[in-house]
Design a binder for these strands. Sequence first.
DNA 1: TTAACTTTGTCTATATAATAAACAAAGTTA
DNA 2: TAACTTTGTTTATTATATAGACAAAGTTAA
Lengths: 391, 391
Amino acid sequence: MNRTWNQYVVKQENKTLVLSTIIDQTPISRASVAQVTGLNKGTVSSLVSELIDEELVEESGPGESNGGRRPVMLLFNGKAGYSLAIDLGVDYLLGAIIDLNGNIIYEEKRQLQSTDFDVVFPFLTRFINHLMEQVPKSRYGIIGIGVGVPAVISHQGEILLAPNLNWKKIKLKEQLEQQFNIPIYIENEANAGAYGEMRYGFEQMPKHMVYASIGIGIGVGMILDGQLYNGLNGFAGEAGHMTVVKDGRTCRCGNLGCWERYASEQALIDEAVDRQLIEHNQVEPFQKLIELANQQNQAVINLFEEIGTYIGIGLTNTINIFNPEHVVIGNQLIDAEQWISPAIGAYINKHAIGFHQNDLKISFAKLQAYSTVRGMAAFTIEGFLLKQRNA
Amino acid sequence: MNRTWNQYVVKQENKTLVLSTIIDQTPISRASVAQVTGLNKGTVSSLVSELIDEELVEESGPGESNGGRRPVMLLFNGKAGYSLAIDLGVDYLLGAIIDLNGNIIYEEKRQLQSTDFDVVFPFLTRFINHLMEQVPKSRYGIIGIGVGVPAVISHQGEILLAPNLNWKKIKLKEQLEQQFNIPIYIENEANAGAYGEMRYGFEQMPKHMVYASIGIGIGVGMILDGQLYNGLNGFAGEAGHMTVVKDGRTCRCGNLGCWERYASEQALIDEAVDRQLIEHNQVEPFQKLIELANQQNQAVINLFEEIGTYIGIGLTNTINIFNPEHVVIGNQLIDAEQWISPAIGAYINKHAIGFHQNDLKISFAKLQAYSTVRGMAAFTIEGFLLKQRNA
DNA sequence: TTAACTTTGTCTATATAATAAACAAAGTTA
DNA sequence: TAACTTTGTTTATTATATAGACAAAGTTAA
């Protein structure tokens, strides 16, 4: 059955429009909302009064007069509820409590000793319980739990494959829903990072953005026409497994010459070991390499440049395919920005189709290590506001 | 200014919903439309009577009774207007008159002797004038002219670059608008082909489809979430210029190892000449190669297989990135289907990520040489119905 | 200081369109 | 032939947006 349009839908849509105008342009007066949205002043008044009843909007003091009666300024109430977001990494959990404005109000990081799911899951639920105790009292309480995982995830929130965690077919969403009576969101870490960067990383939300999460592996989150693109089954973005070297290195995925075999943190480390720049059993090899580069070790600097060039190759491909406005590089490799950035820029500049470079901006994640948690929070917040609207 | 929602918008949306239901499921009764859409019977009656006034819908005779009063069947009137669509190739013009149902009712093909724009443009306008004389009389007449061009085209309908035609910065849309007082649509040939295949090539319209137009060059049209994806400036889909061989063959575009340097018709011909399978100055070299393959020339058959493998590499990349439901191969190379198809299938099967293959279907263009014209017609028809709706 | 003007926000009358329900028309079934 | 079904129209009702009036609270210029 298709969606029909009637007066209820009209009201919902307009209410959403008013609320998002207030969120984006807070503080703002009723009159300005009416002008910006094109809605009638009376309509705005009535919708705002409902939003105030729902405690999603607050009146602050009077604003500056524009030559007449002083306006009553409206604020979005970011403290009406809180999101609980987790970045589940290969060897850590980063948890955060995030308000409706997307600001982190509490964070905590824990190391994981094992990737065994039977170890990780109880650890995770205990961590969530601990975080819940830190959440301030509020009208709507904890509006959702979001977990970002470096994995292929179905629309149903099932982890189909997480190669670096060695997980397969794990119904994480279902299992968490059984433990907590709160909406659960599970997403791919790169998708979450892309979403976080889009929502909170820019003055003006970009419409077309490619976010390359370069860590142990490479995942790509795509914002197309302002929306996260998921593909048919939710598996889109496995650009780490596009072939950039025909008959190249074999990859876990079964393909040859995959991008992530040349441009990821793992590729960097493998190559460094191969070239005897670090020991095979080096602890924190990535940090060590950055240290060496900082000490002007030329061989290491050259290696970073090579990795940068390979990153450039893959990014050039995505640029030619998508014609994005922004390309954002995130995850672990942002710590090597100064060593890889020039090579990336040079390669793209020389090889991407000229037109695509016109309005293109390339940057490193502005939210740094928080792209994923803030993205997961954005998903839960959006879900909450949507449910609120339809209530 | 944002779009506000009021009763007028509701009516427009519902009218569109009713019309598209009738288009999709013609013939259908008012009662069925109400059931399918979820709208009230009275609402449907009133909207249908307006559509009948606009001659977009017709009543046909009574249908079969379902145990009660016999329904009056409604038909979409595909003859209320006609689209004029042109496929502008490197050495030909394919023109078609297409009704609102997307059916070709007249077609004509002309060879081009030169790619010089000053020669082609007058030729094109005369051709259009000639086609216009063949259009039957109807309520809305010629509702639009659509031209598909193998080129990078801006949102404003300017041809920025057509390498194979050697055109640059040509405001084709503007120039045609000056000649004809009819809505003009200019689109990239691969995008048009993708749209045509989506609209008319399947029983059920696919939501996620990648259409690879493999001719002299390679262009990719992407249907994402049921919509054609254009990118920031309308340049998306230049997947032909993704690197598949690091430090490989140089390409016109400035990049190295581009896909289309290994998997296009041009690549096939260049390689065939190199291997002395055909003469350097062979006329219609592609047809000649197919002939040779049909004669069981093993060297030529091997070459086709190699090309097929390279096509498979690029398609695997797009599959891993997009997780599409359908991959459709179109343009010239469909004539070599039997020689390249097994190699393409084998490569994808072996190298694409397993999950992505679950619901994936790979096929050759069902509209054959008409993907582009029918896609361009679909653009004009959609534009017409949209304008009609807002009138 | 004051009158005229502006801006803000609320309230009221009005218009529009969807819905539910009643109803008529035209068929089928037992 | 009577009872039931399905189709399509009509009518009363309801929800919501809009225009415009109006009051409140400010600024500006004489």
